[in-house]
Amino acid sequence: MWFTTGGRRTQSALYRVRWAGKPDENADFAEKAGASVADGGFVRKSDSKWEIKIDPVEVYLPNLENEDRDVRFRMRLGLENSPPDQWRDAALKSQNPWALMALARVGEESDRGPILKILAETIEQGSFAEQPKPNRQSRLDELDGAQRSQTLLTRLRAIQLACIRLGEPTDAEKKMLREALEPLFPHDLQDVNHELCEILVYLRSDKVLGTTLDLLDASDDSRDWSHYLMFLRYLEDDFWTTDDRHRYLEGLKKFDSFAGGRWWIRAGESLRKEFVARLSEEEKSKFAELIPPQQPKPDTPPAAPPTEIVKAWTMEDFANLDVSGRDLKRGEAAYVKGQCAVCHKKAGNGASARAFLGPDLTSIANRFGPSDILESILHPSRVIA
């Protein structure tokens, strides 16, 4: 991983972070493939990148169960770069969701039916609906590693890929998928719900609209709001009752109330414009109050700008600038009084909650020292981004 710090004429640095450990000696899959993990990947060997004589069924397929996510990923790429005829049958027989995902990516239209059938059946037979509610902190541990490959999310992604890459499912296939997925929705896990909503909208499930609106009612998480309001748009008019439309418009009102950046606000405007355009004249007058965008209200009203000039400050007035031990409460008040909060968001400053015109200053201290900050205020155009 590479990253930079600094910028805009302040001191800059470029860092590289790399793993300094030793490769696992037991990882014989790499040896079988004729390369080592340490040289950056089993798939590369001397001058022939993909043309290694490897039996995909013997090497790649079993290692899709490997506990290392990175290895699983490489194994899937290995499968995808082998002729599908060599491993198609074994992949279907294995029912491994990563293998099915690989087949969905490189297979043919005739593979779609078998892939979707296996996924629907394994989802129906699995105990995915009964997953315990995970505790947030342990969730990554719980889902990472080998377990994650077996989770519902991988299967849902494989379904999506099969539909995207191998052509639109037949009506019978759609019905089969709806029957497998509808009982799981709503789920305990948020990201599973997001994927289920997407797929069920695609499958035009009768259940998806009401359930999603219920999920929204119970959620204060902006990730839910941006996701669900976006995907429900794809449902045609005959899926919506007047009550549903009312709930969606109420939802847009709540969407507007989240403190977000400029793209959040623009997304809200676009969703609203598109939704209102689909309303009948009768509904437009019925919902007249909900249709205009809600005016954002900052937590604390913006202060009036100072009218008296104290001094036209220059850099020289603040030579040897030392701001250690300054009063942060008064600094926050000055941030509001000096009108900074009107355009620049700073986390924790309520008056700046709706500011999105200028750059976010929340973590400015990580990149700029006190003199740089003062110079940028006094000479805003000296360095142009």
Partner: peptide, 26 residues
Amino acid sequence: ISTMPPGLIYGLERDEVLDLIGYLAA
């Protein structure tokens, strides 16, 4: 070119400017 009006800071007392920079640099 920045649209920020530097003049707004002219309405702040010296101490307030220092507190503001201290707040931003914290």
